[in-house]
Simulated scan of single mutants.
Amino acid sequence: MGRYYWGIDLGGTKIECAVMSYEDDQCVLRKRLATEGDKGYRHILQRIKRLIDQCAKEVGEYPACVGFGTPGTLDPQTGVMKNCNSTALNGQPLDKDLENLLQTEVKLANDANCFALAETCLGIVPKVKPDAEVVFGIIMGTGVGSGLVVNGKLINGRHGIAGEWGHNVLEANGDPCYCGKAGCLETVISGKGLESYYQRLANQSASLPEIVELAESGDSYAQHTLTRLIEKFGLAVAQIINVIDPDVIVVGGGVGNVDVLYEYGPKAILRHLFNPVLETQIVKPALGDSAGVFGAAMLVK
Rank of each mutant, 00 (worst) to 15 (best):
L102N: 09
A236F: 00
I139H: 02
Q92H: 13
S207I: 01
L45S: 11
H272V: 09
L273D: 05
P76R: 08
K284G: 12
N156D: 05
S21D: 15
Y41W: 02
L194M: 12
Y198G: 00
V237C: 01
V106A: 06
I269T: 11
L226H: 03
A64V: 08
L98K: 03
A56Q: 05
P285D: 10
T73W: 03
L10G: 03
C184D: 04
Y4M: 05
E36Y: 10
V243M: 11
P76V: 09
Q26Y: 04
E23N: 14
Y221D: 12
N151S: 14
E164Q: 11
D38S: 15
L33G: 02
G60V: 08
G174S: 08
K57P: 00
E279F: 14
L278R: 10
K284D: 09
S21W: 02
E216K: 14
L10R: 03
L229Q: 01
W6Y: 14
V149A: 10
D75K: 08
G40C: 10
E210W: 00
G174K: 04
N113A: 07
G193W: 00
G163Q: 07
T13G: 08
K49D: 03
V283N: 14
A162Y: 02
Q199D: 03
G254N: 09
I240C: 05
K39F: 12
A132C: 04
T187W: 00
G288H: 11
K127E: 15
Q204L: 08
E186W: 00
A268T: 06
L270W: 10
I282Y: 03
Y178T: 14
Q46K: 13
T35F: 06
N173D: 15
K96R: 15
G60I: 08
P276W: 11
S220P: 06
G152R: 03
F68L: 14
W6E: 07
N83H: 15
M298I: 00
T280V: 13
D24C: 09
K192S: 11
A222D: 03
F136C: 01
V59P: 00
L226D: 01
S217D: 12
G180R: 06
G288S: 07
N100E: 15
G11L: 09
D9T: 02
L51T: 06
R158Y: 15
P176Y: 05
C179L: 04
A109F: 10
P76C: 10
I244S: 04
M81A: 08
F136P: 01
G12D: 11
T87C: 09
A34M: 12
P246H: 03
G288M: 13
L102C: 11
